[in-house]
Amino acid sequence: MLPSPPPRIKRMFTATNFATAKRVGCFTALLSLLVSGCTSSSSTSQSKDDGNTKPRVALIMKSLANEFFSTMAKGAESHQAENADQYDLVVNGIKDERDVSRQVALVEEMVASGVDAIVIAPADSKVLVPALRRAIEAGVTVVNIDNRLDAEVLQQENISVPFVGPDNMAGAKTVGNYLAANRKGEKVAILEGIRTSFNAQQRLKGFEAAMKDAGMEIVSSQSADWEMSRANTVASSMLSEHPEISAILAANDSMALGAIAAVKSAGRAGEVQIVGFDNISAIQQAIQDGKVLATADQHGDQLAVFGIEAALKQLGSENSESDSSIEDVETPVDLITSETLVKE
Rank of each mutant, 00 (worst) to 15 (best):
M255T: 10
I280C: 04
I336C: 01
S70I: 02
D49T: 15
K187G: 06
E137Y: 01
V188K: 09
S78H: 10
S32I: 12
L303S: 10
D146M: 00
L89S: 01
K291G: 05
N52P: 08
R56V: 12
E186N: 14
A261F: 05
L249R: 07
A73H: 03
S70T: 09
G206D: 08
L33T: 15
L257N: 03
D253G: 02
T53E: 10
R133E: 04
E108K: 07
S42D: 13
P55N: 09
A282F: 10
H242E: 04
A235T: 12
Y178S: 07
E157P: 12
G51C: 12
R203N: 06
D49G: 14
S229Y: 10
V127W: 01
R148A: 04
V35W: 11
N147Q: 03
M211F: 15
G276T: 11
N92Y: 02
L59N: 06
L257V: 02
G25H: 10
E330S: 15
V161M: 06
E327S: 15
Q156I: 09
M1L: 13
G193R: 11
T141P: 02
R203K: 13
V115C: 00
V104Y: 01
T39L: 12
D225N: 03
V329Q: 09
P5R: 06
A151G: 01
D328S: 08
L30M: 14
N319R: 15
G206V: 09
S160V: 11
G176V: 03
P6E: 14
K187F: 04
D278P: 06
E77L: 13
P122C: 08
V24G: 09
T331L: 04
G276Y: 06
G258A: 03
I283Q: 05
D328K: 06
V127G: 01
A235Y: 03
S237Y: 11
N147A: 06
K291C: 05
F69L: 01
V119H: 00
D213R: 13
V111Y: 05
S281P: 11
D225Q: 07
E241V: 11
L312H: 11
A266Y: 11
P243A: 01
E157S: 09
E108Y: 00
S254V: 04
E97I: 02
R183E: 07
I245R: 08
E157H: 10
A296W: 03
T196N: 12
Q285L: 12
F68P: 00
T16W: 09
A294P: 08
L191R: 14
E344P: 02
Q201S: 13
N144S: 08
I194L: 14
A172R: 06
S45A: 14
E241K: 12
